[in-house]
Design a protein around this nucleic acid. Sequence first.
DNA 1: TGAGTTTTTTACTGATCGGTTCATAATGAG
DNA 2: CTCATTATGAACCGATCAGTAAAAAACTCA
Lengths: 203, 203
Amino acid sequence: MKYISATARKSGRPRTFDAETALDKAMKVFWEKGYEGSSLPELTEAMGMNRPSLYAVFGNKENLFRMALERYAASHDPLFNAALAQPTARAVVEYFLRGNADAQTESENPHGCLVINGALACSDDALPIRDTLIERRAASEGKLRARLERAKADGDLPADSCSGQMARYVMTVSNGMAVQAAAGATRKQLQEVVDQVLRGWPS
Amino acid sequence: MKYISATARKSGRPRTFDAETALDKAMKVFWEKGYEGSSLPELTEAMGMNRPSLYAVFGNKENLFRMALERYAASHDPLFNAALAQPTARAVVEYFLRGNADAQTESENPHGCLVINGALACSDDALPIRDTLIERRAASEGKLRARLERAKADGDLPADSCSGQMARYVMTVSNGMAVQAAAGATRKQLQEVVDQVLRGWPS
DNA sequence: TGAGTTTTTTACTGATCGGTTCATAATGAG
DNA sequence: CTCATTATGAACCGATCAGTAAAAAACTCA
């Protein structure tokens, strides 16, 4: 997904904003207030640009959200991939959940997870957004499941364990941590939740 | 919280609706679409009443939501209390989470949990609602913590275990299950998540 | 300087939001 | 039959929603 007015502009009045940092600001507004809870005045205010410029560069509110979501994913995928690259299933889960606990409680960002805060229960208008977020979570769960399946083959998970159930369990904890974080839970509290998960983890 | 126009009416034109069932309908709309995602036309349509009647009986949208929330709590508290009354910590947790898995995937109700779907990330207008929901969840967590504390004294939890951390862990799983349910997870899938929790539970 | 290009600013659109006004309809009581 | 009471339906309120039109402003290049 590309900006509508690209950066390679020949001439004309210079922009008073940087598209990249403006998108970053929009991402944070959506992150904190969700898709429907974020109004255009709030977005343009945070992004430091006026409404026609927003529409010229980002299309419309829905497209802006999708671009913000891409940006969010791009900055969080490395952590997820690093988790998947850990040598054992236990290490994968610990890396994933501890990374989540940290990412969901950064002082410079809204707490919680954009992929959940964006739209959980919403009006009919926002259903396409909600469904996109659901798909993204399902995709992550699928990757985690595949990784745990491999762990079974590697022998660091019991042969009779169900990777699909375990992946869903881990994702459920991650989702719950996002809810807790959005409600004000501290980083320490979330890490303690991870402690409990690891205490019960097989092997 | 009481209906504004009580049921003991002396005379006048009879109502075309029953306040109790209308509130039930409103609860389901809020449950499915959240506080902000539910519009007054949707609410009045579902409740089978017109707008002035809604305002006469329920005050305003926020008050209607709070009454719907009370109703929701009244119908779900018995399950929670029954869980707390189980003889062992393990039984408490199992009863609580299995009950949640069922309650969040009833065919006749929206999936997920009103106390989470109601308002997770929202506009500034809905912050009082969001905070009320956060308090409710914290209250439940507190009761669960107290119950696990007693379990430690009873000896069915290790003496060195932290009831606060375990309670938050269980609540986090419950919250995560609500997110999963809202996203379309089946009852069986949620019960499998509970299986994973119990597999790792001490004792 | 002047033409062409792009963004800014301001004001606007139609739709919808939560909430209300008011005349009318339907009842029970006297 | 009349009157007080209560609920109904429809129309309305100001505010806000997402999205746009149009003209002025600021730049490059000739």
